[in-house]
């Protein structure tokens, strides 16, 4: 299924949920409003035409200039009808969900794709997005008592952690060299 067809199908099924569609470019996606996202996710996974059963990745974005945070869900289809036959038919698609930067809340889709469990924990840990109805939302990579969300653009590197001093004195070299 081509990205245009997936966009069209989603727009007809969920007219009120689609905020934006981007078909051009290297990464076509549909932007979904957060409150309808679990319904759209269930449809993407269960619909026989789409069957996007593999959640590849959740990339959390900090859109500082718009004062928004976003999650990009990269999905893919694996055809499982005849497992021992090599089926190269597939389609990939992405969904984007944006939320307010000061009160970032997105519904969890861990019940649709169990793979989302750890990806959402990572987005919570590094970007500070809270996922409602997540089975076990706690930090995954940073220690539990870490302060702040490192992947935010305005994150300030701590100068001390449990008595261990740190420095931000060393500037990274200019990449234009």
């Amino acid at each position: 299924m081509a990205p245009e067809e997936i966009c069209k199908l989603l727009t007809t099924e969920f007219t009120d949920a689609i905020v934006k569609t981007v078909v051009e470019g290297a990464h076509p996606y549909v932007q979904v409003s957060p409150d309808r996202w679990p319904d759209v996710a269930r449809f993407l996974c269960d619909d026989s035409r789409l069957g996007m059963n593999l959640l590849r990745s959740i990339s959390a974005l900090d859109l500082l200039s718009d004062d928004r945070l976003a999650c990009v869900y990269d999905l893919m289809r694996i055809v499982v009808d005849r497992p021992d036959v090599l089926i190269t038919e597939t389609h990939e698609f992405a969904i984007r969900v944006e939320t307010d930067r000061n009160e970032p809340v997105i519904p969890s889709v861990a019940d649709v794709w169990p793979a989302a469990d750890w990806h959402e924990r990572e987005a919570y840990d590094l970007m500070g997005i809270r996922f409602t109805d997540h089975p076990d939302l706690r930090r995954i990579l940073c220690p539990d008592d870490w302060e702040g969300y490192p992947l935010r653009k305005d994150y300030e590197f701590p100068l001390e952690y449990h008595g261990i001093p740190a420095t931000t004195e060393y500037e990274l070299p200019n990449p234009r060299h």
Binding site: I78, V80, P83, L86, T88, T90, P114
Partner: peptide, 28 residues
């Protein structure tokens, strides 16, 4: 199982070890 493997996002030898012939070098 295959369904469990895909649901948890397993790929590579763990996915093929569940008996499904799927490889990104062939698919994409």
């Amino acid at each position: 199982s295959v369904d469990e493997a895909i649901a948890y996002g397993l790929t590579g030898p763990p996915l093929r070890g569940s008996g499904i012939r799927w490889d990104l070098r062939k698919v994409l």
